[in-house]
Amino acid sequence: MPSIAKPPVRHPALPVNELGLTERDYEGPMSTLCAGCGHHSVTAAIVRALWEVAVPPHMVAKLSGIGCSAKTAAYFLHGAHGFNGVHGRMAPLATGVAAANSELLLIGISGDGDSFSIGIGHLVHLIRRNLRMVYIIENNGVYGLTKGQLSASADVGSTSHWGTAGVIQPIDPMLLGLSLGATFLARGFSGDKVQLVPILKAATGHRGLALIDVISPCVSFNDHEGSTKSYRFTRDHDVHGTETDFVEPRPAILAAIGREGITDLTLHDRSRVRARAVPQGYDPTDRDAVGAYLREAHARGEVVTGILYVDPSRPTFHELLGVVQRPLVAVPYSELSPGSAELERFAQS
């Protein structure tokens, strides 16, 4: 199953972004995932979003754990370094990368098995650390690569490919994130690229951890009648909590909740996200209200999507660490070694 490179030929009329790059420059090799897999659409949305915000490809680090989701890290942005780690440990790897080089934009692709079971201990602490990273969970409620076991995001009563039904309460990453002080929480649907692209663009501008739960159906093992992570179920039960308009960078404007239910959120690169509340009065900066709304909606069987919660005020990982502005990898050895005189002083004390 070798990686299949895409043909290098390009249409001369392809539009370019402000770096002079085409969307093709943000793609990766051919995917080996199943035809119709929701993850393909997520990959396409990532490509589109990164091209639109014109991130220099080499300034991105792609990270993943293990699973179908983890494979997708290879399928976009061939010009960026990528690291497919071990199952559940993407978050620690990301923490290390961020500590070493604060200038990199980290994009992590995880799944519900990777993030909610084997790796949940790390996800929890990654949220607390609030490091700058776009953390995408391709959530399909099922372990695909091991052939269809239910995951910890499977709803109670949702049936697996093999007929068993979920019996334990599922983990909702949005509620988890709210309880831990997450600073950017969004949910998308792989079948709704129109909504997902601006969410991703906004996430790249967030100064801390942007946790994005993307319902991404598994066509092989979890797209049947009785599953609550199927294309059909998600389409039928999708409720947009917010509609997101990504506003290109402009002078800083304080976040303000308008009368019409519009919230302008200023990101660290001074671009703005305008979240339009679809349910009357939805306020993506009110932690308690968002939590209550999500719980009620879940009880009604709704899948609430959009940018659900944003708090740009909390300190980031690097602020918490108190490290230098420049990347640690850029600090020369002469500034790292104590030198002989200092050594003597240290050794005596």
């Binding site: 978050a91 790897l93 290390g96 961020a98 990898v329």
Partner: peptide
Amino acid sequence: QAEDELAAIGIVLGAQWAGA
């Protein structure tokens, strides 16, 4: 200060991969 030793070695590998 990591959440466990799994994370500790993961952070080390991530940082080293990035050149620190």
